[in-house]
Structure formats: structure tokens, C-alpha cells
Design a protein around this nucleic acid. Structure first.
Lengths: 199, 199
DNA sequence: TGATAAGCGGAGGCATCCTCCGTATGTTTC
DNA sequence: GAAACATACGGAGGATGCCTCCGCTTATCA
């Protein structure tokens, strides 16, 4: 009775996952990220498996749906952005730190763009994803921004939400092939604009 | 030399398209609209052909790519909205006319939502589409709005661009299954809000 | 009422999706 | 360290979709 609770009792009696399995999951994730990034969200799942060096069956066991794979990739990228923000806290020039972080973020938006289209049908999945991730990103960005403001290197009339919105806006402009380069240029201009107005 | 100009000379020597062909194109378009509307933009093209009662080859001759089909459907819907606005010019209650038009527009956004994702890769196609369609919609909406303002039934501090933006905003909220119903509710509230403030 | 250009159908080649199960390999226990 | 067991892997295979190609049908024009 107390032996078969929902997803293991307390000090559960479940074997820990096999080490190779974890390694493999990691390799699949890396391959997926690479392919989604430049092949778009319609990249073939078989191609992902092949690139990672596995059979298609393996991919499907780890990620039973395309959506599950997307979610995992996106979460992972968000984690890394949060970690990056952490590291950048000690960067000499706080405005430069902000710039670096935003540039890194462009990559994540590249993933997310495709995801929105793919996740939409699965009502709720996208929301759950956002609800979890967005505040963490706002926090991370907010810390970088606040530091820049406190050190007198950035104006204080924009919040992290505004910056994030601007970032997405830059990335969504048109369907151009070079949107990425364009977004990075715009970002540069924007960060320059964040400098406090010379009195 | 003057015989083979770009797309026929003047009083060109081209047979007019076969009557059945035009009819069939129409049926294909109707089927496509229906399937895209509730099946999303990934609806199978074979399903479209089947629903229209044709072989797949016929669909491909009329619309050589999925994108071409989308464009045709979207243009058509825009045409109808413009025509609808025309008809509503004489509607008794101008604010009600506006409401009716906006409700009809929700249907079109349903199509466009999917299109954005699909057209994005084909750099420029989406832009060309917008460049052509948007101003016509703004005009149509502008006429309805102006009339309501002139007759003292609507406040005068919002333009057609604002209303259109609001409309899109309502439709893009979340990935919910019931977004359509939700959008219609929000629209109602919005139009009520357009009434001039009671003095 | 032919002659002929235009349109139609759908088989077929190729790609992808996803499932299923026999084989292989980590993990645990003694 | 070896047997026993639970897990993970591979990839064939059936289903579906994309798109092309070409022989047959039909509307139009003289």
C-alpha cells in the first residue's frame, strides 16, 4: 500500500538511471539544439538521432514527442542563461556584461521562435513553459541591469521587462534570412542607448 | 518580338481559362480555408484535395506550393473583409457595424496566425503579403470607425491601427484551446469601451 | 463538329513519423 | 567476480505526407 505511491514514496526504491542513459540523453540534447538552431524547428527527428550517433528508437525513448524534445532544449538554454548572468555579475564593465548576456540570449530566442509555432497546438504546454522560465530570465536580467544602474553606467528608466521585450522585438522583425545578424546590430545600438545621457 | 511580351501583349491572344478550372479552384480554396482554420497550417494537402473532391495533382497544378495556397486563402479573406466593410457602411448603428466587422476579422486572424509561422522561412513573401493587404484593411476599418465617430457613437482618440493591434493582441493571447471564444469576449468588451464617455 | 490546348487523376518514389521487440549492456546481489 | 535482472539500444517496418509525371478526359475555338 505504501509501497507504490505516485512516482515513488519518499526514500524511494527506484534504481537510479543508468549512467550511459544520462550521457546519451545529453548527446541527444546537444544534437537537437544544433539542428533546431540552424535547421529550424522542422528538423527531422531522425536527423537528430543520426547526428547524435544513435538509432531513432533511442531518441523516442528519451523524448516521446517532438514537443518534449523542444521543452528540454529550451529549459536547458534558459538554465545556461541564468548561469551566465551569475558569472557576469563580477564583470568589470556592467554595461558590457549586459551586452554580452543579451547577445547570448539571441541564440535562445532562435530556438523559442520555432517552439511557439510548434507548441501552440498543445494547449497549455507553452504556458507552463513560460510561467516557469520567464520570471527566472527577468530576475537574471534584472540583476545585471540593476548593477549597471547602481554603478551609474545605465539609465534607470527601463526595467528588465522592457529590455526583454525589445530583445524579442529585434528578433521577430520580418522573416529575413539574416535576422540574426540584424538582431545583433540592433542590440548593439540599443545597449549604447542605455548609457546615461551625458549631462 | 511583340508577340510574346510579359504575360500577354495587349488584347492578348490567350484562351480564357476553362470554366471548370475556375470552379475547381474555388472549391479547393474553400476546402483549404476550412482545413487550415481548424486543423492548423499543417493540415495535409492531400486532405485538402480529398475534401474538395479532387486528386492531389489538381491541387498542385492550381497551387504549386503550400505557400501559394496560403497566400490565395489569405488574400481571399482580406477581400471579403473589405467587401463586408463596404456593406456595413449603411448599417443602422455604426458601432454595431464595427463590432460585426471585428468579429468577422477574428476568423481571418485564425488563418494568418498559422501563416506567419509558415511564411517566415520564405524571406520576403510575408512582407509582400502584408504590404499589400494591411493598408486595405486599415482603410476599410478606418471608414467604419470614422463613421461611428462622426455620428457621435464612438470616442475619437483611437485610430484604426490601434484597433487592429488590439484585435491581434486578443487573438494571440496564450496558446489556449478556446482562444477564439476568448477573443470574441474581449472584443465585445473593447467595443463597449469605444462608446464616448457619458458626460 | 472536329482539333487541340488545358485540365484531371492518381500511381509511385522518396522522406519522415512513430512503434515494437530482439539484442546488448549497466547494475545489483550474493 | 559472476549470475540475474532491469534498462537501454537499434533499426526494421507500416503509415502517412510530399511532390512529380504522364496518360486520359473535356472545354473551347474555328
Amino acid at each position: 500500500m505504501s509501497e507504490e505511491e505516485e512516482g515513488q514514496p519518499e526514500g524511494a526504491r527506484a534504481r537510479r538511471p543508468r549512467a550511459d542513459s544520462l550521457r546519451n540523453r545529453e548527446r541527444l540534447l546537444a544534437a537537437a539544439r544544433a539542428l533546431f538552431a540552424d535547421g529550424g524547428p522542422d528538423a527531422s527527428l531522425e536527423a537528430v538521432a543520426r547526428r547524435a550517433g544513435f538509432g531513432i528508437g533511442t531518441l523516442y525513448r528519451h523524448f516521446p514527442t517532438r514537443e518534449a524534445l523542444f521543452l528540454a532544449v529550451y529549459q536547458r538554454e534558459a538554465d545556461e542563461l541564468v548561469a551566465l548572468a551569475e558569472r557576469l555579475r563580477d564583470h568589470e564593465d556592467p554595461l558590457d556584461a549586459l551586452r554580452l548576456w543579451l547577445r547570448a540570449s539571441v541564440g535562445m530566442v532562435a530556438t523559442k521562435k520555432g517552439m511557439l509555432a510548434v507548441l501552440a497546438p498543445a494547449a497549455g504546454a507553452a504556458d507552463a513553459l513560460y510561467a516557469d522560465t520567464r520570471p527566472r530570465l527577468i530576475d537574471a536580467l534584472g540583476a545585471l541591469l540593476r548593477r549597471a544602474v547602481d554603478m551609474g553606467r545605465a539609465r534607470d528608466d527601463v526595467g528588465p521587462e522592457d529590455v526583454l521585450r525589445a530583445l524579442y522585438g529585434f528578433c521577430h522583425m520580418g522573416g529575413e534570412a539574416h535576422w540574426r545578424a540584424s538582431a545583433l546590430r540592433l542590440l548593439n545600438v540599443f545597449v549604447d542607448g542605455l548609457r546615461p545621457a551625458a549631462p
